[in-house]
Amino acid sequence: MDIGNAIKTCRIRRGLSQTKLAELSECSVSYLSLIEHNQRDITVSTLQRICHALHVPMGILLFLGSSQDEFGNISKELEAELAKNTLVLLSEPVQDKTE
Rank of each mutant, 00 (worst) to 15 (best):
2 D>A: 01
2 D>R: 07
3 I>F: 00
3 I>K: 00
4 G>N: 01
5 N>S: 01
5 N>K: 00
6 A>S: 04
7 I>C: 10
7 I>D: 05
8 K>Y: 04
9 T>S: 00
9 T>Q: 01
10 C>L: 07
11 R>S: 02
13 R>N: 15
13 R>D: 14
14 R>H: 13
14 R>Q: 08
15 G>D: 12
18 Q>S: 15
19 T>L: 11
20 K>Y: 05
20 K>H: 09
20 K>P: 05
22 A>T: 06
22 A>K: 11
23 E>C: 10
23 E>Q: 07
24 L>H: 05
25 S>N: 07
25 S>C: 04
25 S>F: 03
25 S>V: 01
25 S>W: 10
26 E>G: 01
27 C>I: 10
28 S>M: 09
28 S>N: 15
29 V>W: 03
29 V>F: 05
30 S>V: 10
30 S>N: 06
31 Y>L: 07
31 Y>D: 08
33 S>W: 08
33 S>T: 03
33 S>I: 02
35 I>P: 12
35 I>C: 13
36 E>S: 03
37 H>K: 15
40 R>V: 01
40 R>C: 06
40 R>L: 05
41 D>N: 12
43 T>I: 00
44 V>W: 01
44 V>H: 10
45 S>V: 03
46 T>K: 14
48 Q>T: 00
49 R>G: 10
49 R>V: 01
50 I>Q: 05
50 I>F: 06
50 I>R: 04
50 I>H: 05
51 C>K: 10
51 C>V: 07
51 C>R: 14
53 A>F: 08
54 L>Y: 14
55 H>M: 02
56 V>R: 00
56 V>G: 02
58 M>C: 15
59 G>A: 05
59 G>K: 00
60 I>V: 14
61 L>S: 02
61 L>D: 05
62 L>S: 07
62 L>P: 13
64 L>S: 05
68 Q>E: 13
72 G>V: 02
73 N>H: 12
74 I>Y: 11
74 I>F: 08
76 K>C: 08
76 K>V: 07
77 E>L: 12
78 L>D: 10
79 E>H: 08
81 E>Y: 13
81 E>W: 14
81 E>T: 10
82 L>V: 13
83 A>G: 13
84 K>S: 12
84 K>W: 08
85 N>Q: 11
86 T>L: 09
86 T>E: 06
88 V>Y: 06
89 L>D: 12
90 L>A: 14
92 E>V: 01
92 E>L: 02
93 P>C: 03
93 P>W: 00
94 V>P: 15
94 V>L: 08
94 V>S: 14
94 V>M: 05
95 Q>D: 14
96 D>A: 04
96 D>S: 06
96 D>M: 01
99 E>P: 02
99 E>R: 06
